[in-house]
C-alpha cells in the first residue's frame, strides 16, 4: 500500500497538510485545548461562597484518594465494569461461535439482530430495563400474577450489571466474530478427523485463535462500562453512584467543578492505561503467533 501511495501522483509537499488542515484545526481546538483546560481546572480549588479559585495544587486528587466516599465509588465502578466484562465474555464469545456456525442467511440475519441495538440510543435501552425491573414493572407484575412476592431489582448493582451487559454485548461479539472469520475451518476438520475430541479442538485450536478477539473485546467493554453514564444514572438511582454519575453530580449538582474535573481526569488516565496495556499484550500475542 505504501509503495503504491508514494510512487504515482507526486503531490506537492504541502498538499497532505492542506487537506488535513480543517480536521487538525477542529481536533486541536476541540480535543487538546478542552482537555488541557480540564487538567488545569482539576488543580483549582472551590469555595461555596466564591466559586472556583485559581490556586494550583493537587489537593483535589489527594481529597479523592484520601476519602472513603470516593474510593468506594471507584471500587464499585471497577467491580461492576469487571463483572460486566466477565459476563460479556461468557455470553458473547460462545454466541459469536454459534453465529459463525449458522447457515449463510440465518447468520446474516442474526448478526444484525445482535448488533443493531448498538445504534439505538442508550437512553431508550436504559429506559427499557428500568421499565422491566422497576417495583411496579413488568417482571414484578408477572411475579405477582404467579402468586409470588415482588422483588426489588431497580436501583441495585444487579440492575446496572444486567443493563450494561445488554449494551456492551455487541462490543464483545464483534471482535470474537472477526477472529473466528480468520479461522480456517479445515484445521478444525483435520483435528477432528485425526480423532481429536471436541474438547481438544476447543482448547488447542479455537481458544488460541479467539483469545486476541476476546482480549480486545474485553478492553472495549471494560473501558466503556467504567465510564458509562446513562445506565447507572437511570438504573442505579441517587445512592448507587458510579464514577460517571459522580462527575455529573459534582458539575451540575454541587457545582464543585475542580473536584469533578479531577475525577474525570482520573477516569481518563485509568482508561488510557488499560487501553495501552491491553494493546501491548495484543501486539505481543500477535508477534508470538506470527514469529
Amino acid at each position: 500500500m505504501s509503495e503504491r501511495a508514494s510512487s504515482n501522483l507526486k503531490p506537492k509537499r504541502s498538499l497532505p497538510y492542506l487537506l488535513t488542515a480543517p480536521a487538525t484545526l477542529l481536533f486541536v481546538t476541540m480535543v487538546l485545548v478542552p482537555l488541557l483546560l480540564t487538567a488545569l481546572l482539576a488543580l483549582n480549588s472551590y469555595d461555596d461562597s466564591v466559586g472556583i479559585k485559581s490556586t494550583y495544587d493537587l489537593h483535589n486528587y489527594l481529597a479523592i484518594f484520601g476519602d472513603d466516599y470516593y474510593l468506594r465509588i471507584f471500587w464499585r465502578t471497577f467491580w461492576i465494569a469487571g463483572l460486566t466484562t466477565l459476563i460479556c465474555i461468557v455470553v458473547g464469545a460462545p454466541e459469536a461461535y454459534v453465529l459463525s456456525r449458522m447457515g449463510r442467511k440465518w447468520r446474516a440475519f442474526f448478526l444484525i439482530v445482535i448488533l443493531a441495538p448498538l445504534l439505538v440510543s442508550v437512553v431508550v435501552r436504559a429506559f427499557g430495563w428500568s421499565m422491566l425491573l422497576s417495583a411496579d414493572g413488568l417482571i414484578n407484575h408477572a411475579l405477582q400474577a404467579l402468586g409470588m412476592a415482588p422483588v426489588k431489582m431497580l436501583y441495585t448493582s444487579g440492575a446496572i450489571v444486567v443493563a450494561l451487559v445488554h449494551v456492551m454485548l455487541p462490543f464483545m461479539v464483534i471482535p470474537v466474530w472477526t477472529a473466528l472469520q480468520r479461522l480456517d475451518p479445515t484445521v478444525e476438520h483435520a483435528a477432528l478427523s485425526l480423532n481429536a475430541s471436541q474438547a481438544t479442538v476447543l482448547r488447542r485450536i479455537l481458544l488460541p485463535q479467539v483469545a486476541p478477539g476476546v482480549l480486545s473485546g474485553s478492553l472495549i467493554v471494560f473501558g466503556l462500562s467504567a465510564s458509562a453514564f446513562a445506565i447507572p444514572g437511570l438504573l442505579g438511582g441517587r445512592r448507587l453512584k458510579m464514577v460517571a454519575t459522580t462527575v455529573y453530580d459534582e458539575f451540575l449538582g454541587s457545582l464543585n467543578w475542580p473536584l469533578g474535573a479531577s475525577i474525570a481526569i482520573v477516569l481518563l488516565v485509568a482508561n488510557l492505561i488499560i487501553m495501552m496495556t491491553y494493546n501491548r499484550i495484543l501486539e505481543r500475542r500477535y508477534s508470538k503467533t506470527l514469529g
Binding site: V31, P34, L35, L37, T38, G223, L224, S227, F229, A244, V247, Y248, F251, G260, A261, A264, I265, L267, L268, N271
Partner: peptide, 9 residues
C-alpha cells in the same frame, strides 16, 4: 476518550 470526559472538557 470517554464521552463523559469530553462533555466535562
Amino acid at each position: 476518550i470517554p464521552s463523559l470526559v469530553l462533555g466535562v472538557a
